[in-house]
Amino acid sequence: MTTKILIADDEPNILISLEFLMKREGYEVHLARDGQEALELLRRERPRLVLLDVMMPKKTGFEVCQEVRNDDDIRSTLILMLTAKGRETDVVKGLALGADAYMTKPFSTRELVQKVREMLEAVP
């Protein structure tokens, strides 16, 4: 059974990149272009992991993260936050809100893949 992964980012080109990448790794990929859509898909598709951009319209990545953790159904979703903002405070904030991991853009594709794999294997 292939693992479901959700990618949420408002940049189309990044979506394209990540989609290709995750598909190459053999995951089932769903796409969301804003925070609202991300939450809908999270609840509907119940992916195991979500690649979550922070700066998104409608709902930011932080807000999505919070809601996921407060929602019993999807609380256990793994969250990997991605952002171009590199400030220390944002990392801390993200982790505090419940993200499992945090990567800054531009990221290395290799590292990203590695990280996703680790996260998925950690939780059976």
Binding site: I14, S17, R87, K105, T109
Partner: peptide, 23 residues
């Protein structure tokens, strides 16, 4: 932070795509 964000966004695509193509 705005500028870095703006600059990093296109860089992200460029790097990711380029890496993938290289791989």
């Amino acid at each position: 932070s705005s500028v870095t964000h703006e600059l990093r966004t296109p860089l992200t695509s460029i790097r990711a795509l380029a890496e993938m193509m290289a791989d």
